[in-house]
Amino acid sequence: MKDFWKQVLNFCQQTTQEVSDRLMTDFGKIQAEQKEDGSLVTKADKWADRTIREAIQATFPSHGVLTEETTHVFPDTDWCWIVDPIDGTTNFTRGVPVWGISLGLLYKGTPVFGFVYIPCLKQAFHGFWYGDSGLTGDTGAYLNNQPIFTSKDDPSPSHLFNLCARSLAILQKPFPCKIRMIGVASYNILLVAAGAAIGGVEATPKIWDIAAVWVIVQAAGGSFVNLDGAEIFPLKIGKNYGNSSFPSLVVSRQELISTFKPLASVITQSPYH
Rank of each mutant, 00 (worst) to 15 (best):
2 K>D: 13
4 F>Q: 14
6 K>Y: 06
6 K>S: 13
6 K>L: 12
9 L>E: 05
10 N>F: 10
12 C>K: 00
13 Q>K: 15
15 T>S: 09
16 T>D: 12
18 E>Y: 01
19 V>G: 02
23 L>Q: 03
24 M>G: 03
25 T>H: 09
31 Q>Y: 09
31 Q>W: 03
36 E>L: 09
40 L>A: 11
47 W>T: 01
49 D>I: 11
54 E>P: 03
56 I>T: 04
60 F>I: 13
66 L>E: 05
66 L>R: 01
67 T>G: 15
69 E>L: 10
70 T>Y: 03
71 T>Q: 12
72 H>Q: 15
77 T>V: 10
77 T>R: 15
84 D>E: 07
88 G>Y: 10
91 N>V: 02
92 F>W: 02
99 W>Y: 15
101 I>P: 01
105 L>G: 06
106 L>E: 01
108 K>R: 12
113 F>Y: 08
113 F>M: 06
115 F>W: 14
115 F>S: 15
116 V>C: 04
116 V>A: 04
120 C>K: 11
120 C>D: 06
121 L>Y: 07
122 K>C: 07
125 F>D: 00
128 F>V: 06
131 G>S: 00
132 D>G: 07
133 S>G: 04
134 G>E: 06
136 T>Q: 12
142 Y>L: 02
144 N>D: 11
145 N>D: 15
157 P>D: 11
157 P>A: 10
158 S>K: 06
162 N>D: 12
170 I>A: 00
171 L>V: 00
172 Q>H: 09
176 P>T: 10
180 R>G: 07
183 G>P: 05
187 Y>C: 05
189 I>H: 04
193 A>T: 01
194 A>I: 01
198 I>H: 03
200 G>N: 12
203 A>T: 13
205 P>Q: 01
206 K>L: 10
209 D>I: 09
212 A>K: 10
215 V>I: 04
221 G>I: 03
224 F>V: 13
225 V>S: 05
226 N>R: 07
229 G>S: 07
231 E>W: 05
231 E>N: 13
233 F>T: 06
234 P>G: 08
238 G>F: 00
240 N>L: 12
240 N>C: 11
241 Y>T: 02
241 Y>I: 03
246 F>I: 11
249 L>I: 09
249 L>T: 04
254 Q>H: 07
259 T>Q: 07
261 K>H: 10
263 L>Q: 10
269 Q>D: 04
